[in-house]
Design a protein around this nucleic acid. Structure first.
Length: 589
DNA sequence: TAAGGACGCCAC
DNA sequence: AAACGTGGCGTCCTTA
């Protein structure tokens, strides 16, 4: 059963909390019964429908945007099993329709584009969630009128029709369902939050930086380092925060680097023969300073004040925020929590964290989508890179150890042409022609300005007119060089798009399956107490009672296999995980 | 003085 | 050593 909900009348966000909303049941594409309720009665309405339904889990709630509706339901303690996020699905369909070979005919009934992608949860952490009403979210600053229920019903029909009439309907349907499910998960993870122990975080900061400094002051241990650097380089009152000043000081000390980058400095230190110890001593304090500077500015006391509330870090995910379909996150650097502070992520007493990491997902995805049997077999029951190295040794190929196999395979997916990855590329192609064929094909298309699609049908955006203009211009040698650079760059993008995007689809299905099982894995088919609390591309973190940990580990593993089957049928590709039950995130490697 | 680019580093 | 994909973000620094 499908139920579309939305405001009775189109209007702006000015409508009050008592605005009239309607719920329209849609059966076989036909709008049926209609019920009305006040917007502030939304959660009551949804739970009443759930109570009176024989199969509440089979209801698909259709709404303009999960971000605009679902957080208030969660705050009222109401969750739903399935939804259809019209805004997210519109984005996918619009893109799909730009590529004729997809044969997707889609004209939106209403424009649901937002000028900015809206983070899940949408509540700035400084504010009290209870005081935020439904539509004061940063959802559509474009001041477009909020669509009314009739438009939403029409739009749903337009989307459903576009999918059903397309040759790729099965996969596309799965993609839209997975994307929408992702929106639910993102909102739920935002709501729940990642358990974050501020005391431990502060201990880490104190140990590495010293006591919290006054506003505008440098932490004590950084200050000491700054002075030491000044002495070592012979530049008094040097400000290491300024790359310009630092580079000047390095040069005046005879350190010939072209930038102040970590790698540049390390390379300089390792260049020298006999004096390399001396060189390391010179740049050592600089490197340490940079490390501390990063911790202080990115995940220091300010970050803690800003982002951790009541022992939780609420990551605001942006579903589909990356062109490839990966999620992005807005605020707090949620997807770049550095190793140095991960020890602050701690399970509540009596609970544990389950950290699950999918091993070598992207190459495995490539194996599955290319039906490359050799690559699939290489990863069966073992680390895929190790498997490749074993084949390499047997066949006398240059891919003779794990590091070589890894660099070669990543290089193939990123489009590396030079260095070790570049020189290993032909060897890889000889062993796995089908897999390499898929990425080369995607790159070829991209270089010519064409578009590519993921396994489920997410379509890459076409390059803009400026790109075509630049690529066409080969009038001079430098123009031709520019043309080649642009073309190759686009080729690397489309090359990576198919793999990264399909991996994102696998991850969506993986999480969706985990969620589905958690919701019914408890007593009498009820929900378990464990929930998903964190996600980064190919890794999930769950938090819940220790007593559930064993079952949760099984669920996470089975869901990975299930996601593989959902996408690729009975493909021989394995999707193994590293699953660890821990008290601290830092314990999970 | 605000905006935006450059830089550099973090994550996968 | 760099070059080889997708991002976020804080700071410095230049420009309007």
């Amino acid at each position: 059963m499908v139920i579309v909900i939305g405001p009775q009348d189109p209007g702006s966000s000015a409508q009050g909390n008592d605005a009239v909303w309607r719920a329209v049941t849609v059966e076989n594409g036909v709008a049926g019964s209609t019920r009305s309720f006040a917007q502030n009665q939304l959660s009551d309405f949804v739970s009443a429908v759930h109570r009176t339904s024989h199969h509440p889990d089979r209801i698909r709630w259709v709404w303009s945007s999960t971000n605009a509706v679902y957080p208030s339901l969660l705050r009222a303690g109401v969750s739903v099993s399935r939804c259809w996020d019209l805004a997210l699905n519109q984005t996918i369909l619009r893109n799909a329709a730009t590529l004729p070979s997809n044969q997707v005919q889609y004209s939106p009934a209403v424009d649901l584009r937002t000028s900015e992608p809206a983070p899940a949860g949408h509540i700035p952490p400084r504010h009290d969630p209870q005081q935020v009403s439904l539509f004061d979210a940063p959802t559509r600053p474009g001041s477009r009128a909020e669509p009314g229920i009739d438009q939403l019903v029409e739009e749903f029909a337009a989307q459903k029709g576009a999918v059903d009439d397309s040759p790729g309907r099965q996969r596309l349907t799965l993609l839209l369902a997975a994307e929408s499910q992702g929106a639910l998960i993102a909102a739920e993870m935002y709501h729940e939050g990642l358990p974050w122990n501020a005391d431990i975080h502060q201990r880490i900061l104190h140990e590495l930086l010293g006591p919290r400094p006054d506003e505008g002051e440098r932490p004590a241990l950084m200050q000491e380092l700054a002075e030491e650097i000044g002495r070592t380089l012979g530049t008094s009152r040097l400000n290491p925060d300024s790359p310009q000043d630092l580079l000047r000081a390095l040069h005046s000390a005879g350190i010939e680097v072209s930038s102040t980058r970590k790698w540049d400095l390390m390379a300089w230190a390792d260049r020298g023969g006999s004096s390399s110890d001396q060189r390391r001593a010179m740049i050592g304090p600089v490197l340490r300073y940079k490390q501390l500077y990063r911790l202080w500015t990115a995940n220091g006391w300010h970050w803690l004040d800003e982002w951790v509330r009541d022992g939780r870090f609420h990551a605001a995910y942006v579903v589909g925020g990356v062109v490839t379909g990966r999620w992005a996150a807005h605020g707090g650097g949620a997807m770049q929590i550095p190793q140095t502070v991960r020890d602050a992520v701690r399970a509540d007493p009596g609970n544990v964290l389950t950290v699950a990491d999918a091993s070598q997902v992207e190459p495995r995805i490539l194996a599955a989508m290319s039906s490359d049997r050799a690559l699939a077999v290489a990863g069966q029951g073992k680390d895929l890179y190790v498997g490749i190295a074993e084949i390499g040794q047997r066949t006398g190929s240059a891919l003779k150890d794990r590091p070589a196999a890894k660099v070669a395979l990543l290089g193939a997916m990123y489009g590396a042409t030079s260095g070790e990855a570049g020189s290993l590329a032909p060897h890889l192609k000889r062993l796995f022609p089908e897999a390499i064929g898929v990425v080369e094909n995607a790159a070829d298309r991209g270089e010519r300005g064409g578009q590519v699609t993921t396994w489920l049908g997410r379509t890459s955006p076409p390059p803009d007119q400026r790109w075509f203009d630049t690529v066409k211009d080969v009038s001079t040698a430098s123009a031709e060089a520019r043309s080649n650079t642009m073309a190759r760059s686009q080729g690397r993008f489309t090359r990576n798009f198919v793999v990264q995007g399909t991996a994102a689809e696998w991850a969506l299905c993986w999480m969706g399956e985990i969620r589905r099982r958690l919701r019914s894995g408890g007593e009498n088919g009820g929900p378990m107490s464990t929930s998903l609390v964190f996600f980064v591309h190919d890794e999930v973190v769950l938090h819940g009672p220790e007593s559930e940990a064993q079952v949760v580990a099984d669920i996470v593993r089975e869901s990975a296999a299930s996601a593989g089957r959902l996408l690729f049928g009975d493909s021989p590709v394995d999707f193994p995980l590293t699953v660890e039950t821990v008290d601290s995130y830092a314990e999970a490697k």
